[in-house]
Nucleic acid binder design. Structure first.
Length: 747
DNA sequence: GTAAGCTTAAGCTTATGGCCACCAC
DNA sequence: TAAGCTTAAGCTTAC
């Protein structure tokens, strides 16, 4: 089927022809036949890289040309940026009726800050599922104008953490805009028809790929495929390294999946020694540049380790890396400088980062309850599916590794020849229902218990199960919400001011309840006490307590015993252990706000740079929430802590002591530079002005100083103060230059 | 004969990922 | 639960 033959505006057809797309892939053609362009709902359960995005684009562009608006829901922020960048290329496409302009695209995720209402002026809006939920909770007006919804990776409905959010969000959207077209994109799962049925969507089910995929198992010196074998030269005594070297010899790149961060690091190191021998001069030089970038962007030992690997043409990738390092690794791999990435499952789903060959070094993962467990078929398929870059590789290969013949046979049966599992709604748990019941009531989707039941009947959970089974849980949730003053009334369900606030802050009602309780009880509010309060909530993630740490943390608790709201009795062992883990998490945050450098923090708590930022990120949100709650219940508190929580929120954001807050609030000044200025007597914005450009340049470097003065709106003063020193022409053009690079960086 | 280098066995340790708010320029 | 790491012992190789 030709693009030209489709019922689309000329501008759209020209856009695709110009980018070299003339013919549709078979699954895309099937989607067209099933009414994609006529506005039918559609579920496409097809492999990655088989053209899902194009499907979505065609539907969105058609809808916009008829005056509509599209919402594209993704599971990851990184994916949101990727789609946003892609859709921005439509700025040359002008299809909006009555308006002669290119398409506008907006992005909304936790780290891209744009006003929600302003966002509505775009034709396509990309958002994470949680952000979509939050926009609904805040009753964003343009939500009702959406005519096309694309749900990427809809099989995440199966995820225990995040599935319920997606499910409830979709249910709300369908209630809000009953005539909306829904395009759901999914990996191949067992019961795709069931999801399609729920969404009232036509199903496109296909295994077709633009690049063929061969799935094999390595055993006894060969990669064994169905019907063929490939001999691997045993040049080292490490099987995975041999398979990797074989790939490089053929001119391909490799993605290696490991089961833990530590393993991913050690494989990258181990492989580096051998990969290094295969590099040519040109690649070496390019890698050296990457090494420099890595060192520049890192403050910890991990950066050195990564740099060492990259110098050899290998890299590791996991959530402990900071975002700059992740990007350098991903881009370095895409541009074929880095030959191998050894990664945790971070790279399995999401980012588009294919390779000639995928090696799955471990198909087992640790589960605290059951020990090492084989991963689901779906996870395997996602990893294997990364093999083969469309249009670049002649084929893709995935390799599992077996130690015995029996294991090999088992792997063929259980993974290669198996279909992915069915997906199951996880909405039935109390944890999931508690938060979503509250938001459903707050937003008026249900005002009575019967109304709530009716809403639940429309969810995927109810599509798969009888709802009478969860009514007990629903009632428990309602009781919890009433007990904690978030709901009122028996017949009619009325949200209280507290309930509304908890819902819009997007915190678990249980977190809200803990915070309110703690705020009321706290007598001697200190940094560690307040930090512990947020670390206790289910929204905070916990650090793992190692056995030899109990004593040390216990000592700290004893020394500050009057600062904690409540300390469980030591006799309740489990509970006390939990408490110590919460305190440990609070201690990490305390080090962060006390300006401890990252390196000692990562070492002390055995985490990566990326983790520290992730902890701070969550903590900032929770501290903000607690601050807002404190404002609401102020009359009921014995001591007013609003000022303290507000200050702590800022300190967590910047990782800085109170005295630095003024300096650090200036854009471009982080905690390190602020400290340098402060220790040299420059403590406020005014004293920056007094000190002058020259003095500040000495401390933080001329470029940053210039940026800083520009930021505090002082460039005019400088010019008049030092007319002889700086040519105003050069100065202002230089600053313009700085300005643009700086805002580029911010993006 | 000795030291270095390698292999093997036993014992110990440790084990994925990542989303969400609001403010204000 | 099991894989990797560390340590120690046992063996081979090189001088």
């Amino acid at each position: 089927m030709k693009i030209e033959s489709l019922d689309l505006p000329d501008d759209v057809i020209r856009f695709y022809l110009d980018s070299g797309i003339e013919e549709l892939y078979p699954p895309q053609a099937e989607a067209i036949e099933k009414g994609l362009i006529e506005g039918n709902n559609l579920l496409a359960a097809i492999p990655t890289a088989s053209g899902k995005t194009l499907l979505a684009e065609l539907a969105m562009l058609k809808a916009i040309s008829k005056g509509g608006k599209a919402l594209y829901i993704v599971p990851l922020r990184a994916l949101a940026s990727e789609k946003f960048d892609r859709f921005r290329s439509f700025s040359s496409v002008s299809v909006k009726p009555g308006e002669n302009r290119g398409l506008r695209v907006g992005i909304s995720t936790g780290d891209f800050e744009s006003r929600d209402e302003w966002l509505g002026s775009n034709d396509i809006i990309v958002a994470t599922s949680e952000k979509t939920d939050s926009l609904l909770r805040n009753e964003t007006s343009w939500m009702q104008e959406i005519t096309t919804i694309v749900v990427d990776e809809v099989h995440l409905l199966d995820s225990a953490n995040r599935g319920p959010t997606l499910e409830v969000t979709l249910t709300k959207l369908m209630k809000l805009n009953p005539n909306c077209q829904i395009i759901a994109l999914s990996a191949t799962v067992g019961n795709a028809y069931e999801v399609a049925d729920w969404l009232k969507a036509k199903l496109v089910l296909s295994e077709w790929r633009p690049t063929s995929l061969r799935e094999g198992v390595y055993y006894g010196g060969n990669i064994n495929f169905h019907g063929s074998q490939k001999l691997i030269d045993p040049r080292t005594n490490d099987d995975a390294v041999n398979i990797l070297l074989d790939t490089l010899e053929e001119g391909g790149q490799c993605l290696v999946f490991e089961s833990s961060r530590k393993n991913s690091v050690s494989f990258a190191k181990r492989a580096g020694a051998k990969v290094s021998e295969t590099l040519d001069k040109l690649t070496r030089n390019a890698l050296d540049e990457l090494v420099e970038q890595i060192i520049e962007n890192g403050e910890t030992e991990a950066a050195n380790e990564l740099a060492k690997c990259v110098r050899n043409g290998t890299a590791f990738h996991h959530a402990g890396l900071n975002s700059a390092h992740r990007r350098i690794v991903e881009d370095g791999f895409r541009s074929n400088k880095i030959k191998v990435i050894s990664s945790t499952p971070t790279l399995a789903a999401g980012l588009n980062l294919p390779a000639r060959r995928v090696i799955i070094r471990s198909y087992r993962r640790y589960d605290p309850n059951y020990g090492m467990q084989p991963i689901p078929v779906l996870d395997y398929k996602q990893m294997a599916g990364r093999a083969g870059r469309p249009h670049l590789d002649p084929y893709g290969e995935s390799v599992l590794i077996a130690k015995s013949y029996d294991e090999m046979a088992g792997l063929f049966d259980n993974y290669i020849d198996s279909d992915a599992e069915d997906i199951w709604s996880k909405l039935g748990s109390e944890n999931a229902l508690r938060t979503h019941i509250l938001s459903t009531i707050v937003n008026g989707f249900a005002t009575t218990r019967d109304g709530l039941l009716e809403f639940i009947e429309a969810t995927f959970f109810a599509h798969q199960n009888d709802t009478w089974g969860i009514m007990d849980v629903v009632d428990e949730c309602l009781d919890f919400l009433r007990d904690n003053k978030m709901l009122e009334g028996d017949e009619a369900l009325l949200p209280t001011a507290l309930g509304r606030l908890v819902s819009t802050l997007y915190i678990d009602p249980l977190s809200g309840a803990y915070m309110v309780d703690g705020l009321k009880k706290i007598k001697n509010p200190t940094t560690i006490g307040l930090l512990h309060l947020i670390c206790k909530t289910p929204d905070m993630r916990q650090l793992y307590l190692r056995s030899n740490e109990s004593e040390i943390i216990n000592d700290i608790v004893m020394a500050h015993s009057d600062e904690f709201v409540e300390i469980p009795p030591r006799s309740k062992e489990m509970e006390y252990e939990w408490f110590l883990a919460e305190v440990k998490t609070a201690l990490l945050l305390q080090d962060w706000v006390d300006e401890k450098p990252l390196d000692p923090i990562t070492e002390k708590f055995n985490v990566g740079e990326g983790d520290v930022h992730a902890f701070a990120d969550i903590a900032e949100w929770l501290m903000h929430s607690m601050s807002r709650l404190a404002g609401l219940i102020a009359p009921e508190m014995s001591t007013d802590v609003s000022n303290q929580t507000a200050l702590l929120e800022k300190r967590i954001h910047y990782g800085a002591s109170p005295e630095l807050i003024e300096l650090v609030s200036i854009r471009g000044i982080g905690r390190v530079r602020a400290r340098k200025l402060y220790d040299n007597g420059i403590k406020t914005t005014d004293s920056i002005k007094e000190a002058g450009l020259e003095r500040v340049s000495e401390l933080i470097g001329p470029k940053t100083a210039l940026k800083l003065f520009n930021e505090i709106g002082l460039h005019l003063d400088i010019r008049s103060e030092e007319p002889g020193k700086v040519n105003s022409q050069t100065m202002s053009s230089l600053m313009e230059n700085e300005q643009s690079t700086f805002s580029d960086f911010e993006k």
